[in-house]
Design a binder for these strands. Structure first.
Lengths: 352, 352
DNA sequence: CTCATTTGAGAAAAGGTTTTCTCAACCCGG
DNA sequence: CCGGGTTGAGAAAACCTTTTCTCAAATGAG
């Protein structure tokens, strides 16, 4: 009704964004009324309400989230701190986190801190200034801290797939349970001489998985011949070396190899084939991590333990939301179960 | 000087964050003076300034970024839209972007839109409400749009490694130049029968690289025998199949294979070895993408074309900052050069 | 017709900071 | 002693929205 002026619908972006005041003036009401009309609050005639809404729509009004956040003392924003931007662990975790938060209308600041305390401090400062509602710390190893301390910051913190501070809330994978899954799968298929090829002993998970491997073997009365445990680098190359050792010497030969990750397993499978040993007929192989792109392209495709990282991230995100809403959450470390993804590298299941 | 009350340094987080007003009251000045003291603005005695600063430090004052952003009409925040959270392309791009922006004190909202227009719309709305200073669109393919249109939003937009809208500013890799690097490297090493094993023809880059491959061969008077061009899936498996075709038939055999990605190259190298052909002595192989974890573990390690994605991301980030600062930037698509990372899969350089 | 109640809508404060103005006090040259 | 300039600091507006009051007009009961 303001004459012929172009409403701007779909046209060049306005220099200055349209504010609630603009809407109010255009509709001939006060900003208070305009606000209430758009938020379904207060009392007014239905006609007034629809008129204001129509004006807002026509002007392309979009409420300023900064002003809203300032007033509500809640920014609908969380910070995600990680030292593993490139890696394949934190990515599924992050995806799970985002997924959980998006549904609540919460946006995520992604901050990569590498292993640089200065960078970590910088990012944390920035997050706090931007008044994030909470922070999630994620990483690439369960036994290493991020290079920054998050205690006593005044905002809720959740740890997901990284070493937590004492007394905090954390979600991690249950590596021992995952290892049990693998070894018990071998046992169920009738394998009896099960070796374990894994990464460096500086990794906590290496010990956890090895302990579970030994435990399952013991429970089934199976022994661990000398040399059936091999620790080295997390690489295909070491997979090859391990096979050379395991099958090159005079001693007993394994009929199954549980590997600490999929790259090792890939190396092991390739090395076995090159020695003329058939996978899974002569030797069964199981990997860890279920890194699709490696596991699926191995010949034969790898059976592997999946850490359900995406679900882990989702749990972390949902829990953070609870904290932000003021709900109390018991501190402690939650271990989330792994699952076994069966492909073709260890033979038919017992019923086959 | 306020007596014995615990200053709270390092203690339990205060329920309510301390504001500038708190600082001003504690220091016995007005908020205006307090603000100026902390920002090195205005005029006051050095004593006043240091006193206020000391009080602010003691109270753990941290300015509220929301209030600052509201006033400055600048949130020091940008949105990063991608449909490739898991993939390996957008990750280096993202890392480069973050790196460029962190130094300017700008935080990044990471938003994964998959290929879901609804999710895309949702994220864009959220970004605009949160008053991002700009948006960067990234993806996993140069020839596919994100599932959301970004024109006329009223904020600066940059496209990085994804199909741009017409008239916009975009950064992409120069795939033709990258392919030339590879083929010319082969030619310089004396290879004469250079095959090309690549991905599906639904990818634009497949055409660009193939055209460059043909062009370089033509420039050097080298022919392209029938069957020297093979298009299939982007998988190791197809690499094997391609080798079977290339070397199984009666025709001329290549002495070099330029592969469309590192997985293909890995499959090709493995297949060659299995046929008893030596890499690089009998056949040279070059990959594309320089995916470290594949290229370095291949036996022998792969020479590969690197798209410099991290640098590409950095350029995109810096350019967005220019736009945000109001500087004019010529629209258009900038192709950034690739580089060849030489490992051991195609023999000694000529001078060796 | 009067009084109490409901209805529709606006004024103003709040959220935390920055910046422009204003103003009193002081200094100094004339 | 006077007037112009400087200095130190505060008042107030601005950023944009939400929410609580407040208030006049309209309505209904008696």
């Amino acid at each position: 009704m303001t004459g012929s002026a172009d409403s701007g619908e779909g046209r060049l972006p306005a220099r200055r964004p349209v504010t609630l005041r603009d809407v109010a003036e255009a509709a001939g009401v006060s900003v208070a009324t305009a606000s209430k009309a758009l938020n379904d609050q207060g009392r007014m005639t239905a006609e007034t309400r629809t008129r204001i809404r129509e004006v807002a729509r026509r002007l392309g009004f979009r409420p300023n989230g900064l002003a809203q956040s300032l007033l509500r003392r809640r920014s609908f924003t969380v910070g995600l701190l990680t030292n593993d931007t490139y890696g394949r662990f934190s990515l599924p975790v992050m995806a799970g986190i985002s997924e959980a938060l998006v549904d609540a209308g919460v946006s995520v600041f992604l901050c990569n801190v590498e292993d640089d305390p200065r960078l970590g401090q910088l990012h944390v400062e920035a997050m706090l200034e931007k008044r994030v509602d909470g922070i999630i710390a994620s990483g690439k190893r369960l036994d290493r801290h991020l290079p920054v301390t998050l205690a006593g910051l005044g905002v809720p913190i959740i740890y997901a797939f990284t070493e937590p501070d004492p007394g905090s809330i954390a979600f991690v994978s249950d590596d021992a349970q995952g290892a049990r899954l693998a070894v018990e799968h071998f046992v169920a298929l009738g394998r009896r001489r099960i070796a374990h090829v894994t990464g460096p002993e500086s990794f906590m998970v290496v010990h956890q998985r090895a302990a579970a491997w030994r435990a399952v073997l013991a429970e089934h009365g199976l022994g661990v011949p000398d040399g059936f445990y091999m620790s080295g680098r997390w690489s295909e190359r070491f997979g090859h070396e391990a096979v050379a050792q395991l099958f090159g010497g005079p001693g007993e030969k394994p009929d199954a190899i549980f590997c600490g990750n999929d790259q090792l397993a890939r190396g092991v499978v390739d090395a076995l084939r090159e020695r003329g040993l058939a996978v899974p007929d002569d030797v069964g192989v199981i990997g860890f991590d279920n890194w699709e792109i490696v596991a699926a392209e191995t010949r034969p495709p790898l059976t592997s333990v999946d850490m359900n990282l995406s679900a882990l991230g989702r749990e972390a995100g949902l829990t953070l939301l609870s904290l932000v809403d003021g709900k109390a959450v018991e501190p402690g470390i939650r271990k989330l179960p792994c699952r076994l993804v069966v492909r073709q590298s260890c033979g038919r299941p017992p019923d086959g």
